[in-house]
Amino acid sequence: MKILVCISSVPDTTSKISFTDSETVFNKAGLQFIIGPYDDYALARAVELKEQSGGTVTVLNVGTVETEPQIRKALAIGADDAIRVDAEPTDSYFVAEQIANIAKEGNYDLIMMGRETTDYNSGVVHGIVGEMLGIPSFSPVMELNIDGNQAKMTREIEGGKEKLEASLPLVLGCQEPIAEWKIPNMRGIMTARTKPLNVVAPSGDSLTSISAYSMPPAKGACKMIPAEDAGSLINLLRTEAKVL
């Protein structure tokens, strides 16, 4: 089985976010970058599937040279080779286009990625890739087993779970508990140095650019309401919080 795992390189989830250049540029200085946490689940399950029934896992990242430590980590975790599309991942459509172009050439059985990235959280790349390739896509997949040419999946849906089966090839957006995150071991880390990482030029141009970022509004002060005054609480929930 040939699996393509698409990983994003995102700021560590505890990072403090700031912007520069009149709020038009995301300030990366001093931040620690990690493999997107949902992508990491996808990668872990892909490596498990390879260990169970053979095949190869290729890691794909759309990003600049700065993302190579995350790609190396994916190789240390167990991917066999990697491709980096040398471009800033400016928007979901652009990223999906790059993935679809690589996927077309590689003839993959599974294209796996996280349900969303944890920087911009658009959560649409898997859907667009599926559309571009003309194959089904599912998300968020929380369980995945492969039986011959069939994928047996569990997907989270509003208020419950859905069990599905579909034939390969597929595009999947994954989330926990599809697998446990894998911690690279020394042997993996050392062999990652010798695994191929191919850098390719992007195809097409990004159609969007950022005009400005803004931080969410600061949290409002806490309003204290005397315990005996339930009426004002209800009033505020109606008029200000608008939850009643």
Binding site: P69, R72, A76, W181, P184, I189, R193
Partner: peptide, 17 residues
Amino acid sequence: AHDEETFQLILDTAENL
């Protein structure tokens, strides 16, 4: 056999553990 990247990955592993 080591380089900056292996060092950082090893420290990542320690952090994950």
